[in-house]
Write a protein that binds this DNA or RNA. Structure first.
Lengths: 243, 243
DNA sequence: CGGCATCCGGGAAGATACTG
DNA sequence: CAGTATCTTCCCGGATGCCG
């Protein structure tokens, strides 16, 4: 087997195309299929293995994940890499251009978060949570803050570095963190976006804080949600009034 | 018939969901289906009728367009409106929140335009073209320019107003334009993005210019394309070199 | 276990024809 | 013009099983 495999229909590309020169349409040709953008999202903080992706994308099936990874690789968005011998497992990683689509995810997320139907109580993956921090940080509220906040979510750890109104997020060691949140991503989301107090969440045993508690409390206030769009119901009420 | 019609399955919503609190995933629940984002694109410069949408989205079928419009209306992105008696036809229009997704289209288009596989020679709708102008204008190159450029594309006309490094685009009258391009959208795209000279295109009879020709020539230089991402072939060559 | 190929059922998309 | 009805095709999701 010289190249990984022979695609069934004469070397790739009998996929459906929009046949439109518009860059948006071409983008949809690349990542418009179901799950594709979420696969990219999950790779945004670094490489992952096949089964990590499956675990972080509840609902995706193995064959669909395979197809998406093939498609994204063919498009030059994802590449596969073999880790050095110690753990010779295969991982999927974004190319430089793949990483460059974070602004797309940000614009899209910012817009969709205003949907009247958005339900923030659904489960959320760690990557989504930290991407949302990068997206929603209010530089004004973070002004003058210079701190390291760590997160322990099950097996994985993330470090958020705040300085000069900017934010940096890295997956990995949380040594030297000034404060550490310990809990599932959903609990942290409830604290930051759901307005749940640390006390309540701690009482429920779903979220704990170690280190600088004042810092932790302040951290929760740094990510204001955008105003919701007018819902259909509200629009109907308004129309009735102005009839 | 009080409400337009009864949706078959107990009032809406048995669509597939990702079940993910991430705003990106929710956005995909709203506009992730095929054609949805392109329908929104076509409405970006104002209301359109069903058949206008069909004409500007070559390849979409009537039933799919119907479904997308229903879905987008249910989501609060599109609304239907009946025009006043003179021309009592129905049109589809974006809600305020619908218009707010232009930054999503822009970020997405900017990213996708860097795809090695992007083919700008395909047909393009007028709306895509003018959205691309709003997206790609280089304020530095437009500095000091104060002008009105008109476009006559078949039946519809667009006016581009440049001033103070900013751009405004309106569909409608092109009276008071300093220069006017006359031709199909594809020809204008070839001139702006394909590097084709006005002379060549005029000789082919696909593009004409009236009014200030100097202005027209300068206009073509205002929208630089972003650098392409490294193609798979180039990456392979580079890898071979560093082996 | 990780990474697939394969088969199957349901449903969404595409094409065409038809109606108010 | 603005859709609906119908039929076919293809994609998605789930299960199973192979192979290193």
């Amino acid at each position: 087997m010289k190249s990984r495999k022979i695609t069934k229909d004469t070397e790739s590309s009998s996929r459906r195309h929009y046949g439109d020169a518009c860059a948006v349409a071409h983008g949809l040709d690349l990542v418009g299929e179901r799950w594709a953008l979420l696969v990219i999202r999950e790779l945004m903080f670094g490489p992952k293995r096949f089964s990590d992706l499956r675990a972080d994308l509840p609902g995706i099936s193995a064959n669909v994940l395979t197809q998406r990874l093939e498609g994204l690789e063919a498009a030059g968005i994802v590449m596969r890499r073999k880790l050095p011998p110690p753990a010779a497992s295969q991982v999927y990683e974004l190319t430089a251009w793949g990483y460059d689509c974070e602004p797309v995810l940000q614009a899209f997320g910012r817009w969709a978060a205003r949907s009247p139907e958005h339900d923030p109580s659904l489960p959320v993956s760690p990557v989504s949570l930290f991407l949302s921090f990068r997206t929603m940080l209010d530089p004004v509220r973070a002004r003058g803050l210079d701190a390291r906040v760590g997160f322990r979510l099950g097996a994985s750890t993330f470090l958020v570095r705040l300085k000069g109104g900017k934010i940096e997020v890295t997956r990995g060691s949380i040594d030297h963190a000034d404060a550490v949140f310990i809990g599932q991503a959903a609990a942290i989301a409830a604290a930051v976006y759901g307005g749940q107090s640390l006390k309540t969440l701690a009482a429920q045993g779903v979220l704990m804080v170690e280190g600088d508690r004042k810092l932790a409390e302040r951290f929760l206030t740094l990510f204001p949600l955008p105003a919701k769009a007018e819902s259909m119901a509200a629009r109907a009420r308004r129309e009735r009034r102005t009839d």
